[in-house]
Nucleic acid binder design. Structure first.
Lengths: 164, 164
DNA sequence: TATTGTTATACTCTATAACTATA
DNA sequence: TATAGTTATAGAGTATAACAATA
């Protein structure tokens, strides 16, 4: 079951036999798996006129629970992007009537972003096929393998994080 | 050892208790791990005036072995991008004197991209710290865990691939 | 007709900087 | 002074389309 990464490793073995390129087996497959998964998820999002960024914002609002209101800073932290990037995502979603911005009554500087009825309906609808796609991608793994994979990825995440 | 993804799962559990959101534990960590790894690798690349795209082209040429010459179509296939994107990457690398373009003597339509002496020196130099970074990221895993993780990622990759 | 390769163009997404306003 | 939020701007990267040339 040799894949593309295996062929890359063979090339390195031939060209640089003294080098330990074994970490590439993991890092290479991690990158490619993430790319493939992103592309697959994008297919589902597109069926609802969404992309990963928009889905992300709407899903963050939905899972925050009633009354489905969050500040832009929280959205920025959650998505690991700048607040200006958030503002621009929100402009698009607001133009489509999927979210609305309200003044924060407790903080004159603040804004609260809320799901509109249309936004809530859309994300509730898109969530199910999205989960089905994720289920399909992980379906071949046993329960034990899933737990293990999640744990290993978390450790990779921790190890990669240190440097900014 | 709860991480960000754990908190997201808890939110979903509270808001949508009947939904099986367990695939998110894997997909979510996969995305975040890939992001963190990319950022970490970029640090190393930057020390040599490279980014991931440039490194990718130079490394592909190096591991192809002497005489370190590849056609743009092969580079496109390998990097999974369009040939026009390759042409634009090559323009930059050629301007820096790291690769050169030659006519393919066996195919009048073809071009062969070759590492220049400077390009070869740069990629040979950058390769070692790059591998060291990858080694550091995977260092906490045992040999068995590494093998397992690579295999699981390959299966995720296969499962995600089907749809275009 | 298909393939190889390039450029021109437009698009998307982002961060930085500048700015307003409130704490 | 620091924080919240927005817009304007510029940059990076890509794909699509159009094109030239050879197979």
């Amino acid at each position: 079951m040799a894949d593309h990464v295996d062929r890359i490793l063979e090339q390195w073995k031939a060209e640089k036999p003294d080098l330990d390129v074994s970490p590439m087996a993991i890092i290479g497959r991690l990158s490619r798996a993430a790319l493939a998964v992103d592309a697959r998820l994008a297919n589902t999002f597109a069926r609802y006129g969404l992309d990963a960024s928009s889905f992300d914002v709407l899903a963050t609002l939905l899972r925050s629970g009633a009354p489905y209101r969050i500040s832009p800073v929280e959205l920025a932290r959650d998505a690991m992007i700048s607040t200006s990037a958030v503002a621009q995502r929100l402009n698009k979603l607001e133009a489509r009537g999927l979210v609305s911005r309200q003044a924060n009554p407790d903080d004159g500087r603040g804004t609260l972003v809320a799901l509109t009825a249309a936004g809530r309906k859309l994300i509730e609808t898109a969530l199910l096929p999205h989960l089905e796609t994720e289920r399909a991608i992980t379906a071949s793994l046993t329960v034990e393998e899933k737990t293990l994979l999640a744990a290993l990825l978390q450790r990779i995440n921790d190890a990669a994080r240190p440097l900014k």
